[in-house]
């Protein structure tokens, strides 16, 4: 469920990076203040590596012939507590983006929010903890794991849909897209929750002291959890509102539907909507440009036969330069080897 750079517009990607950076700063400050225990630092690092390795173990799902793998957000939160778990999962996501091409630099903010924030900072304290609080029985562990894993994954999937739609990457309507993503992630979340429950039960039976949720269940400040949740919800609403404003300044869908209803020829004429859109666009040049409308119907600058030839030549020149550098390097190496 990692988002890729190419599925995002810089505005959405940048906004989500800011949100996630804020969450990281907040979590780091929280760890520094009240739950700091320097024993936790190596534990966090190694648990991060554990999640990484555990995600790569394929397990077979009986009856379907397909295989799944663990996400690990709830597992981490149950072992480390919510803030350390969030930072650890963020570290895992950074490494996945950098070394395994899962996600990307610009998409990092989205991935941290979708996969780490929603599971460790929302689903875990709001669903997992209240259920576990009354005591760790197999039934409660199972219910808490399944419910929180499903909630985390489905909200993450919804966030992916929202981010992609706001970026204007897909022509799929929001409802259709969400209708495709949610059932799939319900099923995945169910399996993930069951596995999480099995792992937690095993560890609880063998070595209960490893689980932080087992230790801290008596001393739980209900207020702070609620506060964090409310703050996160408000922040999400603000960001979503801001993003949709930004998105409506680039009325992809709007212009598209205008094109459909008004016919292409009329688009050459200057309409008010168009002028307004062009003005906003001039102000923020970093966003995708829609300037082709000004050139009249069916003429996108840079997408013409001349452009195609030019692109081919550009590619050839780029490739040629690379090849020349390669040759020059080889020659120098040879000379060095002989001399």
């Amino acid at each position: 469920m990692h988002m890729a750079d190419a599925l995002l517009s810089p505005a959405v990607g940048g906004a989500m990076c800011a949100v996630s950076a804020g969450a990281v700063a907040y979590a780091a400050a929280k760890i520094g203040k009240d739950e700091f225990d320097d024993k936790k630092i190596p534990l966090m690092g190694i648990m991060g590596a554990f999640v990484f390795a555990a995600q790569m173990i394929n397990f077979t799902i009986p009856g379907t012939g397909s295989s799944g793998h663990l996400g690990g957000g709830i597992l981490l939160a149950a072992t480390l507590g919510k803030f350390p778990a969030f930072l650890t999962l963020t570290a895992v996501l950074i490494i996945q983006a950098l070394f395994f091409a899962d996600g990307g630099l610009l998409a990092l903010g989205c991935n941290v929010f979708n996969l780490a924030c929603l599971t460790c900072l929302i689903a875990y304290p709001l669903i997992f903890k209240p259920i576990i609080q009354k005591g760790m029985t197999p039934k409660r562990i199972a219910a808490a794991s399944v419910l929180s894993a499903v909630a985390g994954l489905v909200s993450g999937a919804l966030a992916v849909v929202a981010e992609t739609t706001l970026s204007g990457i897909t022509e799929l309507p929001f409802k259709t897209f969400a209708g495709l993503m949610i059932p799939i992630h319900l099923a995945i979340g169910l399996v993930e929750g069951l596995v999480t429950a099995a792992v937690l039960l095993f560890v609880y039976g063998m070595r209960p002291e490893i689980l932080s949720c087992a230790a801290e269940r008596k001393a739980l400040g209900g207020v702070s959890v609620k506060k964090v949740a409310i703050a996160m919800l408000v922040a999400t609403a603000l960001v979503a509102g801001g993003l949709s404003l930004l998105a409506s300044a680039y009325p992809d869908g709007l212009e598209w539907s205008i094109e459909k209803t008004a016919g292409e020829a009329e688009l050459a004429a200057q309409s008010e909507v168009h002028e307004a859109a062009a003005k906003v666009q001039e102000g923020t040049a970093i966003l995708p440009d829609y300037d082709y409308r000004e050139e009249g119907a069916a003429a996108i600058p840079g997408t013409s036969a001349a452009g195609l030839v030019g692109a081919a030549i550009t590619l050839a020149v780029a490739g040629g330069c690379g090849f020349l550098i390669h040759l020059a390097k080889k020659r120098r190496q040879k000379a060095a080897a002989q001399g």
Partner: peptide, 20 residues
């Protein structure tokens, strides 16, 4: 083909304990 779902708890749990 992989670890059976029924064994996944012990398997990943064991790995978790070793990591801790």
């Amino acid at each position: 083909k992989g670890v059976k779902l029924a064994h996944m708890g012990q398997f990943a749990g064991q790995l978790l304990i070793r990591s801790a």
